[in-house]
Amino acid sequence: MKRLVPYPTVAGPVELAVVRVRVDDWTLPVQLVNTTDRIVALHTDRGTDWNEARLTVAVTTAPGALRPEHHGRDQACTAVLRERATNSVTAVRLHPDGSGAWTGEVSLDHTRHAGRVLLEAHLTATVDDVAGRIIGSTEPWNVDLEARTPTAVRTVRLVQVDFAADDRPELHRFRADPWHVDAWGDPPVLYLNKAFEGLVDLLHADASPTRDTVAAQVGVDVWSTLFLAALGAAAESGDDEPAVPGGWHGTVLKRMLPDVFPDLSPADALAEALKRRREGDAGFHALVLHAAGRPARLNPMLGGAIRALRRASESGR
């Protein structure tokens, strides 16, 4: 995240590496740490019955990027764990290791975290007599307590169910619909109505004009619903200055805003979308539907959805 601030910040990238993860008294296999997408998957075959995960981290800057005479004194590096859902923040001072990196161990307590935890580090210095100014930040890592594999972005969950089923009262009012998108939770859920004759078979079938048309309809519905829900989350963030929220809300906004307002910068596009939403602008809905129908987005999403469907039916669920 680059911000415009009235003091010098560190040039070049500030990188955070997760060197090792210990869960209680054993070491997490390296395959569960994805350094490219910056994800740690903590849900292993050993189960969820652990107390503490300790992450050894190292933060580096480009050689010579940090100059005391330019960036201020009292330079320090702090790693921060943050999870919105559990309102938990933990900050740990890292220590210079003598070779230009800061290292340290961050402890993640299992009673204070439940899902996806952000891990980032900030470089600070005393600038113009103000202590604790942020002069550089790393890209955040996701430490995911529920993930079994360290892959990017949990996508839409797909559930096949009879909408009239007794234990699904929330779907009863949609019982005549072929599908329903629920953007309330995390991850969002796409329900396919098993009682809607032929739908599931159709989506399983080989490519055909009919399948592609139905799939495209589902896709537009999914993306426009997710977009409006994500925008609602941004509006509720409670800050004066609108910011892209975390989690899937942020992912959806970052992917769709450039299509909704192609001529605006990301920040302006978000502000404009929030303004139109507040004003109840009728044309806005059309813009969202248009952006949601972009083939570039539809195809991968539906490919993924259909693969997920296959996997689900193969495993007998």
């Binding site: 320090a76 702090t78 921060v80 900050a91 604790g132």
Partner: peptide, 15 residues
Amino acid sequence: GAAGSTLLYEVLAPD
């Protein structure tokens, strides 16, 4: 909240 975007309170006032 706004000041927190350029200040790290965790450094200014550690817990």
